[in-house]
Structure formats: C-alpha cells, structure tokens
Design a binder for these strands. Structure first.
Length: 573
RNA sequence: AGGGAAGUAGCUCAAUCGGCAGAGCAGGCGCCUUUGGAGCGCAAGGUUAAAGGUUCGAGUCCUUUCUUCCCUGCCA
C-alpha cells in the first residue's frame, strides 16, 4: 500500500526465489529504458517507480538507459525532457546513465559471432517479400532463398551493409531460428536494418542499426541487469530475448513482464498523445490536461502524489483501467498536507457592510495551513466592501443550503459574522449586490454569546484584492475509456469544456509575490498552482483539482433522479 | 498449423505455497468542524469466470469449457 516497502507482488516473489536459489548471487539490478521519441507520462511513472523501487528495496541499483536504436524517430529534445522529468519525480541514477548506442560496437561484434556460428544471415528479400515469407498467425512461414548462404558470404555482405554498399531496404541481417514457429518473433527475426538517418549521438558513423530485440537483452547483459522488467506485450519476445543471450553465450538476465497502467478519462499511447499535440487539442506536451509528467507538473501535481499513487495501485499481470479518482485521491491527500490556504473569489458577488466604517481597514489574522503549524499565519485586509462567491448566496435557499440568504447570519472566515439585510438587483432582476450588517463583537469569527452559524464563507476585500486569471480544468475526455470504441476515433470523446478561463478572479493581496509552481488551496474551492504564463502584471492560476464537495455532489444527485445502479453495459456484438 | 497471457467486491490489489476470502479507492449512511475541506465512525458490497475431479478441507492442485487481451514493423 502507500508504504511501498512491505507490499509483495509477483515480481518480488520471483526475485525472492532467485535470491534463495542463488541465481544472481543476491544481486538486484534494474533499469528504466525509455526510447527518446516522446515525453514521459503517468504510465511511465509506474514503470519508473517499479524499477527504482525494486532496486532500492533489495539494496540494488537502477540504471537509466535510453533505448536509442532508431534514429529516425529519436531526438535530443526528448532525452532532455525525460531526464528532467525523472529528476523532478525524485529519482537519481548517479553516473549510471547509459545509451543503447554506447553498445553499437559490441552489438556489431555479437552479430558477427552469430554469423560465424551459422545462426545469422544476410537476407536480400524486399520488405514486402519478407512479410509474405513470414506467413500468418495460423500458417507457417517459408524460408528465404538467401537463408543458406555460406558463412564467408554472409560476413562479406554484412560488412557491405555496414559500409553503405546497400540502400535502405535492400538487405537486412536475420537470425536463423525457425520459420515454422508458432511464435512469429522466432521466424528469423531481423537483427539489423539499414537506416539512412543521422543518430543524435553517433551521428553518421553507422549505416546499420540493431533492432530492439537484438539490442535490449544484450544491453541488459552488458550492464549486469538481473531483472529486466517490461510490459506485457513483450511476453512473446522473451523467447527471442533468451535465444540471443543463449546463442551469444553471455550473462543472462531475467525478463519479467507486468501490466502497463491505464487511467480512466485519458489516453496513454504515444501515438495518441502526439495527435493531441499536433492536431491542437491541447497547447503542448506540458498542457495541464495532458497525462504527461510535464503536464501533471504544470497542473500542480506533486511528485510525492504520483509516487504514492504508483505504490498504491501495485503491480500485476491483469490489464485494467485505474479510476482517475484514485490519482486524485493521492493528489488531494498530499496537497492537503503541504499547501498553504488562501482566500480567492472566482465568481464575485459584491457585499457592502452597511454598518462598517467607510474608510476603516482591519488586518485579520489567518492560518496558513491547519495541517502544518509551522506554516504560520498571515494578515488579510478587511474593509467595508467585499466580494464573496456568488454560489454562496441564494435568495430562496432550498432545505440543505446553509450559506448566506436574506436574513440569515453566516461567518466570514477569520473576520465577522454578517447578516444579509437587503438584496440589490439590476433592471433585469439580476442580483448585483448584497447589503449586510456585521456584528462587531464577533471579530475573529466567534460570538461572545456563544451563538453558532452554520456556514463560513471565504471573501476578499474589494479594494485590496488583486486580479488574476484562473484556468479551470476538467477531464480531457468525457468518457472513462476514450480508446475502447473501435468505431469511433478517440478525439470524438474530447471534452469541449476541458478548459474554462475565468478572468478576472480576485485573490487576497498576500499572493502578490507568488512564483510559478507555487501551490495553494483556495479555501472551500480547489487547489491551484501558479502557471509559468504568469507575468509581473498578472498571475495565472491552474486549477489542479477541486476540493471534495458534498453540497455539489448532492446537487448532482438531485438533478439526476432515480438513475440508480443502471450502469451502461457494453453494446451487443 | 497457430503461439502467448490473464480471469478474486464497481476499480486497483491481498490471501503467509491446501486451512475462517481481506484492504484501499469509489459508492451509501452517520458524526464532527471557524474550509459543506480535512478528520472520524458505521453498514453494504463475493457462487473466487464455469463445470467436474483429488482431498477431512480447494481462490490455491488436476481436467475440461468460457471470456478477454497481446502477437503477422526493416517500431520500441
């Protein structure tokens, strides 16, 4: 659970067994191996927490290794972003930063060795022909006519591939395994292909690049990785992973597969995230609605919340979807402990305290964080004209509405009890102002005669408040599982109200010096974080997540009557 | 002539290798409160996918069936 340490799972069971039978001499070494072709997202966070967490738990080490074997897709920008996100999450790999491309020379020698022992050959079939020869899921493949070339010829041809004697697509190096295998990965998989692209790290040194399968296991082996943890779709690749290591005869790590994370109301495939960015549904990879680490960071998530979430969901082999609620639970839990409280009004309603002296200003003392005494207190100016939240007043309140109403007394937080004396409307009947009276005896918020009020409202002083912009976010998608519908593109489920900008909102003057990244709780409303778009003239706040709100929940229930347990079932086939 | 994997509460996971099926979240109902926040309490939630078998005893072992997911890139 949230402690992370004592939770057991099928992976720790495997490792415990290895430790008992001495397979790795009780050494545990893991790695996090991203391909630098996109940004890290919450799904990667699970893998990161897992790999670094397992290593830490067993007193081992976790390496960072970029899997950069396909220069056509990879860029330095992504390497930098991934590194930054990992550090922000709080992980450290000391000097153990590696690249698969560091091993290109060794990998090449391993390939030559496989040719020498007759287990690899240069194939000059075209890509289309290779596909055709491969067979199908239910039919065996056929052997390439080039499959039985003599070793010397293969050696010369592979050298020619390396030297640029072939163009892209004209030749590949293949492992000679079994064209009739039920596992298609074993039907003479391609080891090396020719790629006419500059590599971010090796430049134009290489014309040929190893495939993932030929690079990954050996890279693990070279680094002394004991447990190579990856996602379920590589289960079919494990026999190939093992085959290369066995035939090259080098140190043999154990590949272990787990179920990747899915979160409701979002998508986590790189292909789809990139579409969101490129087709303009969001402003960029770090848009606060994105499930990327940089998006979550900008949204106001704390690294601890993400890590605690990952610990909580555990690890298994069952593919499922974790409710967004779960992530938000950990987010609120964390933010509640660490965020300073502040008063801000998003939808203002003017309140004039009729019996308060015109020019008087009082400094009210407010607690910064009731969960953390060391956060101290601050002063909040109070005066005759205030703003309160429009939702905090109803002229004709329903039964369970405890807030302000005509004739009713409520508390202004840290200030006074006030009673609504009059409601002022414009020509359209719109409420534009409340006239209230205050009880001077209730300064600080409690009455000497011990009388109670049912509600406490937040407020700002109109003449002291500073104006700011609020960006109110909702889920990017309107449905739990945007990519589960085979007949509809996921973009058709995009929530048209995923961003609502409110400008101005009114915040207490204490916030004047807030810096980008500072997190606050706007009391009774939500957690907010200062966005980097903020300027010296105007602060911009991103709503991270709302507070839980029983009143609003009850309202929703009242609106949707008797919809009881009727959950949607999947459509009939 | 297909191969691989997974099915335990609405969701995510447990169940000390055969011994009373438990947690967290969500949902429900209360209490409390200078945030309708936070906090606290209570109840509910299960034919362990199904059937058969072994056993004193099966979520766990065996057999069969069903359902779902992954695999036919010179991507990772």
């Amino acid at each position: 659970m949230t402690d992370g340490d004592n939770s057991r799972n099928f992976i720790t069971e495997i490792i415990d067994e290895h430790n008992e039978n001495g397979r790795f001499n009780e050494v545990v070494r893991t790695r996090f191996p991203p391909e630098p072709n996109g940004y890290l997202h919450i799904g990667h966070a699970k893998s990161i927490c897992l790999n670094f967490g397992i290593a830490e738990r067993y007193g081992g080490l976790c390496n960072l290794r970029f899997d950069d074997t396909n220069p056509a897709k990879e860029e330095q920008e992504y390497i930098d972003a991934i590194t930054e996100d990992l550090r922000w999450l709080g992980y450290d790999w000391d000097d153990r930063l590696y690249f698969a491309s560091d091993y290109f020379d060794e990998l090449y020698e391993m390939a030559v060795d496989l040719i020498r022992i007759g287990r690899a050959y240069v194939d000059e079939l075209s890509p289309d022909e290779i596909r055709e020869y491969r067979g199908t899921l239910t039919e065996a493949g056929r052997e390439s006519p080039y499959r039985n070339r003599p070793v010397e010829e293969n050696l010369a041809l592979f050298q020619k591939m390396r030297d640029g004697g072939f163009k892209e697509g004209e030749a590949v190096l293949r492992a000679k395994i079994d064209m009739t295998s039920g596992n298609i990965n074993l039907r003479d998989p391609v080891m090396y292909r020719i790629l006419d692209a500059a590599h971010p790290r090796t430049g134009d040194k290489w014309k040929i690049y190893p495939m993932y399968d030929f690079a990954h296991g050996q890279s693990d082996s070279i680094e002394g990785i004991t447990h190579s943890i990856c996602t379920l779709e590589y289960e079919d690749h494990r026999p190939l992973y093992d085959w290369y290591l066995d035939n090259i005869e080098i140190f043999h790590p154990q590949q272990i597969e787990f179920a990747r994370l899915n979160v409701s109301h979002t998508v986590l495939s790189k292909r789809k995230l990139i579409r969101l960015v490129q087709e303009g549904y969001v402003r960029g990879w770090d848009d606060p609605r994105m499930p990327t680490i940089s998006g979550l960071r900008r949204r106001g998530y704390s690294p601890e919340a993400i890590r605690e979430f990952c610990d909580d969901i555990g690890v298994g082999k069952v593919k499922g979807v974790v409710a967004l609620h779960k992530l938000e639970y950990h987010l609120r839990r964390r933010l509640n402990k660490t965020s300073n409280r502040v008063m801000a009004v998003i939808n203002p309603l003017k309140v004039v305290i009729e019996n308060y002296p015109d020019d008087q200003v009082e400094e009210m003392e407010a607690v910064n964080n009731p969960e953390d005494e060391s956060a101290g207190t601050r002063k909040v100016p109070f005066s005759k004209v205030l703003y309160i939240e429009r939702d905090d007043f109803m002229e004709d309140p329903p039964r369970k509405f405890f807030r302000l109403a005509p004739g009713r007394e409520v508390r202004l937080r840290y200030a006074y009890f006030i009673t609504c004396a009059d409601v002022i409307k414009d020509d359209n009947g719109e409420i534009i102002e409340l006239r209230c009276v205050y009880d001077p005896e209730t300064r600080g918020g409690s009455a000497p005669d011990g009388r109670r009020v049912k509600a406490t409202l937040h407020w700002v002083s109109a003449q002291h408040a500073i104006q700011a912009e609020a960006r109110l976010y909702d889920t990017l998608f309107t449905v739990e599982n945007p990519d589960s519908d085979r007949n509809r593109d996921f973009t058709s489920f995009i929530n048209p109200d995923s961003l609502r900008v409110v400008n101005p909102i009114y915040v207490e003057p204490h916030l004047r010096n807030a810096l980008a990244g500072d997190r606050y709780q706007f009391e009774r409303l939500a957690y907010f974080v200062v966005d980097p778009d903020s300027t010296a003239e105007e602060l911009v706040f991103n709503r991270t997540v709302t507070l839980r709100d029983q009143w609003r929940k009850d309202q929703k229930k009242a609106k949707k009557p008797r919809r009881k347990k009727r959950r949607q079932r999947r459509p009939a086939p």
